[in-house]
Structure formats: structure tokens, C-alpha cells
Design a protein around this nucleic acid. Sequence first.
DNA 1: ATAAGGCCTAAGAG
DNA 2: ACTCTTAGGCCTT
Length: 298
Amino acid sequence: METGTISIDELAGGFDLYRTLESGQSYLWQRSDGEMYGGTPAPDAWYTTVVGGSTGTRDVIRVRTHDGCLEWESTTDAEPIVRRLLRLGDDLEAIVAAGPDDPLLREAYEAHRGMRLVADPSFGCLISFICSAQMRVGRIHTMVTTLAREYGDEVAFDGETYHAFPTPEQLATATEADLRDLGLGYRAPYVVRTAEMVANGEADPDAARDLEYEDAREYLTQFVGVGDKVADCVLLFSLGFDEAVPLDTWIKSAVEEYYPDCDRGSYAATSRALRDRLGGEYAGYAQTYVFHHLRTGE
DNA sequence: ATAAGGCCTAAGAG
DNA sequence: ACTCTTAGGCCTT
């Protein structure tokens, strides 16, 4: 086992592990008490995920906050991976300071200080948000966990068995009926067909990285089960498009109540107006704070 | 380009 | 205990 620590003091704007991993951005981690998305964890709870290596290898990584540090334990030298997945290099202080000075956003930033965006692996993120349609966060996490258990590689670490999120090829072996039996409902055929599209090379979510923002969103909507909202989530939580502003039910209610002049009728026009209102370049950061603030009511 | 109807299902509200 | 509504929408007319 390899281990290490990262001082949270050295991270501009701080870091809140719980709020980062349980704010509806990522469904690819497991909390040590097994109660992910089900209440406040113990302060030093571990979060575990499995990442894929370049040669088909799998590495287990777990992290927790303890004594003012972010501790990690892993099958590999995980510090660069942890820094990338949890975006520890972001100057959160500067991002918050650069945001517009409106009451809702200030309140959200204040209430959830230290929450960062995540940078999930693209395929797992894509499937997670296809599953998210009309679904509570707890059940999205259950679905993604079930897919990993049923179709992903097993990895042993520290006496426990973990599951990687399945590869496109692995998930493409599932049938619609299989996934309906696992509780995915009408999302089942979407997941199968999208996995097939990625597995057979018809499209690749990572290819969106090379496009301009709105072209990238359009590109992702070719996947089955992916509309504008899900595409924006993948762009924001995986592909590094910090300007993406997913318009979900919570953000739509925020538009109605706090930014009524940003309602332009269509998704694209409203999203664009809200993006400008929330500061442009890092509008997605602001969106994520507002979303979490309204959803949790905290 | 925009609008209505159907869709799985578990958990919470009434 | 039951029914009704809701939950981070998408696909097809």
C-alpha cells in the first residue's frame, strides 16, 4: 500500500471532501460507512474509487480528511490522480472572488465553502448522468454502484474487494432486459446503446474535449439518453468545461425566482444568458454551488 | 424550432 | 396501510 498526505492549508480556498463528493457531481465513489448520499458522514470517513490505468490495470484509491490534511491510500502513487480527480489545483478563492456579487450566489458560496468541482472519468460520468434522468441522487448512486458490481472488474485492496466502473465493452454486453432487472427502468436501453456506441468506436465522449463549448454539447447529445442537460453535466463534471451551466429543475427554479430576465425560452438561449450572468468562464462552478444550495436547503 | 405525451420505479408526502 | 406525487429528462410524434 502506498500512502500520502496533502495539506489542505496549501489549497487556495480550502477543500471540503464531503461536499465535493456528495453534491450530485460524482457517483463513482463509495463512502466507508456505505451510506453515500444518505446523511452526514463521520468527519474522517473514507471515500474509495477505482481508476483505470493505461494498460488495462486497475488502481484503488481512498481518501479522507484528517488533522487538516487530505490523506490517501492506494495501490499506486495516487497523489497526482487525487489532485486531478478532485481538482485540488483550482484556485477556489479566486473563482469565488471572481463570481458576480448577487445574494443567492454569495449565500451558496458561503454555505458550502471548500466544495470543488470534480473531474470524473468520462465514460463513467456519461453513464451516471444518463441514469440521472428523473432520479434522486441516492438512487443514481445505487444504480451506478450496481453497474460496477455486475459488470466491472474486481480489484482487491487491503483485504476488501472493490469494483471498477465497467468499460464500454463490458457494459455493452448487457441487454436492455438485464439493466431493467437491475432497476434502471426506461434508462436501460439508453445505457446499453450508448455503451455500444463507445465500444464500437462510433463516438467517444473524450473527443468533445477538442471542440468549442456549444459544439461539444451538441456532440455529446448524439449518445442515446443524452439531451442538453445531461451533456452539460458531462462537460462540467468530466471534460473541464467550467463554463457549462446545466439547466435542471433546481436551476430552472433559480432562474424563475432570482434571474427571471435570463429566461429566454429555449435551453440554449437561457443557458447562455445564465452563463453570462454567473460570470462566464467559471459559470459552472457557480451553477454547482447554487444547485447544491437549493437542493439541500442548507 | 418548439410542444405534448409516455416512460421505470422507489421513496416521501398526504 | 394505501394512493399520489416526485425525482438533477429524454425520446418520439
